[in-house]
Simulated scan of single mutants.
Amino acid sequence: MNPLNHVAIIMDGNGRWGLKHRNSRNEGHKAGLHTVEKIIKETIRQKIKYLTLYAFSTENWKRPKIEINYLFKLLENFLSNKLEDLHKKNIKLNIIGVKNFSKKLNKLLYLSEKKTSKNEILQINLALNYGSKFEIVNALKKMNQNNDTINEKNFKKYLQTKDIPDPEILIRTGNTKRLSNFLLWQLAYAEIFFEKKLWPDFNEKDYIKIIKKFKSIKRNFGKI
């Protein structure tokens, strides 16, 4: 049975779900938060230590400004209302990506990380304004500035996930089969599961099914 420490998820399909069920992309993003809460609970129940959620990519800035503003307001409200609950549940919040948001959101993200920094039951890595290509180029620049020897071990020290084990599983909902500039280095040996369901429709049973399938897979890592 394969050990499972880290699950990464591309939460795709919120906008499409919102248009289909509520005639509003924003309503889909709102509905997607309920799925996030369900998956967090199940991740803890499964005793998985790391959960990385792709919340906003560097490419998402191309979306309409009204949708971007709604997404960040939704995040602000979620953190303001749920931070204490996350802390009580011994959940650590870690942000990967470039924090160049509003002063209010930047402050809230900083306080969320600080307040939960010593929690141990689960670490949630929230990928915000994150792009893997930028992360890789930035890591190489820092290596060069420090005159560090270029090898895998040293390179990983300059990634935003430097103290986090690589994901064993990547889940992408929304019936789209691509990585979308997400954890390109870290996902080198992840088992990838593309789900047809849109993110708000994804549930605990779907998640458990993937976990069970992963644990039964023979993982060779290049060996026979």
Results as ranks from 00 to 15, higher is better:
residue 221 F to K: 15
residue 162 K to R: 15
residue 94 N to D: 06
residue 130 Y to F: 12
residue 45 R to N: 14
residue 54 Y to W: 14
residue 207 Y to M: 13
residue 219 R to T: 09
residue 40 I to K: 07
residue 219 R to Y: 05
residue 103 K to P: 13
residue 130 Y to I: 02
residue 217 I to C: 10
residue 197 K to I: 10
residue 55 A to E: 08
residue 207 Y to V: 13
residue 133 K to Q: 11
residue 116 T to S: 06
residue 153 K to I: 09
residue 118 K to V: 07
residue 187 L to D: 14
residue 146 N to H: 12
residue 181 N to K: 03
residue 183 L to I: 06
residue 203 N to R: 08
residue 179 L to N: 11
residue 84 E to C: 01
residue 99 K to F: 01
residue 12 D to M: 07
residue 44 I to L: 13
residue 106 N to R: 03
residue 2 N to R: 11
residue 95 I to L: 04
residue 104 K to H: 10
residue 215 K to A: 07
residue 214 F to N: 08
residue 185 W to R: 09
residue 180 S to M: 11
residue 165 P to Y: 07
residue 103 K to W: 02
residue 76 E to G: 15
residue 34 H to S: 13
residue 105 L to M: 09
residue 101 F to A: 04
residue 192 I to R: 08
residue 184 L to S: 12
residue 110 Y to L: 10
residue 186 Q to I: 06
residue 115 K to C: 02
residue 172 R to G: 15
residue 27 E to D: 14
residue 5 N to P: 13
residue 166 D to N: 14
residue 105 L to W: 05
residue 41 K to Q: 12
residue 97 G to P: 03
residue 20 K to I: 00
residue 76 E to P: 15
residue 198 L to Y: 05
residue 96 I to R: 00
residue 27 E to S: 13
residue 224 I to D: 14
residue 149 T to H: 13
residue 211 I to G: 02
residue 15 G to L: 02
residue 92 K to W: 07
residue 181 N to P: 15
residue 169 I to M: 07
residue 147 N to T: 07
residue 221 F to I: 06
residue 35 T to L: 09
residue 146 N to Q: 11
residue 130 Y to D: 12
residue 72 F to D: 04
residue 78 F to L: 07
residue 29 H to A: 10
residue 203 N to H: 14
residue 15 G to E: 00
residue 128 L to Q: 03
residue 179 L to A: 04
residue 4 L to R: 01
residue 41 K to V: 13
residue 126 L to P: 04
residue 81 N to E: 09
residue 211 I to D: 02
residue 185 W to T: 00
residue 204 E to R: 12
residue 35 T to K: 08
residue 42 E to P: 08
residue 199 W to Q: 09
residue 59 E to H: 13
residue 214 F to V: 11
residue 12 D to W: 06
residue 134 F to R: 10
residue 15 G to W: 06
residue 160 Q to Y: 12
residue 153 K to F: 08
residue 162 K to V: 09
residue 203 N to K: 15
residue 108 L to Q: 14
residue 165 P to R: 00
residue 168 E to K: 07
residue 60 N to P: 15
residue 191 E to R: 10
residue 204 E to Q: 14
residue 215 K to R: 13
residue 68 I to R: 07
residue 125 N to F: 08
residue 96 I to L: 01
residue 206 D to F: 12
residue 109 L to E: 06
residue 181 N to D: 12
residue 222 G to S: 06
residue 198 L to I: 00
residue 67 E to I: 09
residue 83 L to M: 02
residue 13 G to R: 03
residue 127 A to D: 03
residue 44 I to N: 01
residue 12 D to E: 05
residue 84 E to Y: 02
residue 89 K to I: 05
residue 42 E to K: 09
residue 192 I to H: 11
residue 211 I to E: 05
residue 164 I to E: 00
residue 21 H to E: 12
residue 80 S to D: 10
residue 209 K to M: 11
residue 12 D to N: 10
residue 204 E to K: 14
residue 115 K to N: 01
residue 23 N to P: 10
residue 6 H to K: 01
residue 51 L to R: 06
residue 71 L to I: 13
residue 223 K to S: 14
residue 5 N to T: 08
residue 97 G to L: 00
residue 199 W to C: 10
residue 174 G to S: 03
residue 49 K to Q: 05
residue 188 A to S: 15
residue 189 Y to R: 08
residue 197 K to G: 14
residue 219 R to N: 10
residue 220 N to I: 05
residue 47 K to C: 10
residue 200 P to S: 11
residue 100 N to L: 01
residue 145 Q to G: 07
residue 147 N to E: 14
residue 129 N to Q: 12
residue 122 L to N: 03
residue 209 K to S: 15
